[in-house]
C-alpha cells in the first residue's frame, strides 16, 4: 500500500510530461485547423511523402547511421583498452572520458565553432604553417564530426560496462584451450559484448537521427535534417500539425530500428540495455 502511494508523484510526472505531450502530438498530427475547430485528416502524413521531405529523412537516417558506425568503430577499441586496465586506473580513465558530458551540450558544440571556423584555431595553425585556410565548417564532415564527438561517450560507456564484467577466467580458459589473442577476441570477447554494442547503437542512433542543434550550428542555416524540419515547422512556419506528423513518423522509424537491432541481441540476460 505504502509503495503505491510513493509511486503517485512518479505517475503524475509521467502523465504530465510524457503522456500528455505525446497525446497532443498525436492529436495534432491527425488533424488540421484551429484548436477550437479540429478536423480529422491524414493530409499531414500525405504531405510528407513529397520527395523534398523524404530526401531530408533519407539524409538524416544516413547521417545517423554513419555516426553510429563511426562511433562504434572508434568507441569499441577505447572501451576495450579502458576495460583492460587495472581497476584504479580505469575508473580515472572513464571519468576523464565522461567528464565532457557534464558540460552543456550547446556549449560543447559551440566549442567546435571556435576550433573549425574561418578564423578558428585549426585554420590559424594551417595559415601559420603557410597553407591556404580550409573550409572546415558548414558541411557534412563538420556535422558528422560534431555527432561523433557528442555521442561517442554513449557508445563507449555501455560497451565498457559489459566488457569489465566479462570474467577473466573465461579469457584464461580460452587461452588454456589454445586460443591466441585474436581468437580470444573474436570468439569470446566480441560475442559476449554484443549486448553492450546493441545498447550503444541505440543510445547513439536515437539522438543522432533526431538532432537539430548539431546540424544547425556546424552545418549552417540551410542544413536540413529531420530534426531541423520539425523545429522549422513548429517555430518558423507555425504548422504544428505537419510538425507533429513528422515527429510521429520519426518516432515510428526509431521504434522499428530498435526492434530490428534488439533481434540481434540473442543473449537477453545481463545486457543492461534499454529494452
Amino acid at each position: 500500500m505504502k509503495l503505491k502511494v510513493l509511486s503517485y508523484p512518479y505517475v503524475v510526472w509521467i502523465a504530465v510530461f510524457i503522456v500528455v505531450p505525446l497525446a497532443l502530438v498525436l492529436l495534432y498530427s491527425f488533424t488540421d485547423g484551429d484548436l477550437e475547430d479540429l478536423n480529422f485528416t491524414i493530409s499531414n502524413f500525405r504531405k510528407f511523402l513529397d520527395s523534398k521531405y523524404l530526401n531530408v529523412l533519407w539524409i538524416s537516417v544516413k547521417l545517423a547511421l554513419e555516426s553510429t558506425v563511426l562511433t562504434l568503430i572508434l568507441g569499441y577499441p577505447v572501451a576495450l583498452i579502458i576495460a583492460k586496465e587495472k581497476p584504479s586506473k580505469r575508473n580515472t580513465m572513464i571519468f576523464l572520458f565522461v567528464m565532457p558530458m557534464w558540460m552543456n551540450f550547446l556549449l560543447r558544440t559551440y566549442a567546435w565553432l571556435t576550433l573549425l571556423g574561418k578564423n578558428g584555431v585549426i585554420n590559424f595553425i594551417i595559415e601559420f604553417l603557410g597553407f591556404k585556410p580550409l573550409d572546415l565548417l558548414y558541411n557534412d564532415g563538420a556535422v558528422l564530426l560534431g555527432m561523433i564527438y557528442n555521442f561517442l561517450p554513449f557508445m563507449v560507456l555501455p560497451i565498457y560496462s559489459v566488457l569489465v564484467k566479462i570474467d577473466n577466467s573465461l579469457i584464461e580458459s580460452a587461452e588454456d584451450l589454445g586460443a591466441n589473442k585474436f581468437q580470444i577476441f573474436t570468439r569470446i570477447i566480441l560475442p559476449l559484448s554484443i549486448p553492450g554494442i546493441i545498447t550503444g547503437i541505440t543510445m547513439v542512433f536515437m539522438p543522432a537521427v533526431s538532432t537539430f542543434v548539431i546540424s544547425r550550428l556546424l552545418g549552417g542555416g540551410q542544413y536540413m535534417l529531420i530534426g531541423n524540419l520539425i523545429e522549422q515547422q513548429f517555430l518558423w512556419v507555425g504548422d504544428w500539425h505537419f510538425g507533429s506528423a513528422i515527429s510521429i513518423i520519426m518516432m515510428v522509424f526509431i521504434l522499428i530500428t530498435m526492434a530490428i537491432t534488439s533481434k540481434f541481441d540473442t543473449q537477453k540476460e545481463g545486457s543492461g540495455g534499454l529494452w
Binding site: 570474467d167 573465461l170 584464461e172 540473442t266 543473449q267
Partner: peptide, 18 residues
Amino acid sequence: PYKRQINTVFQKYALFPH
C-alpha cells in the same frame, strides 16, 4: 598457456556462457 600441452579445469568452471 596456449602453447602448453596442459589443460585446466578452473575453480569456477569458467564455461563460455554464449
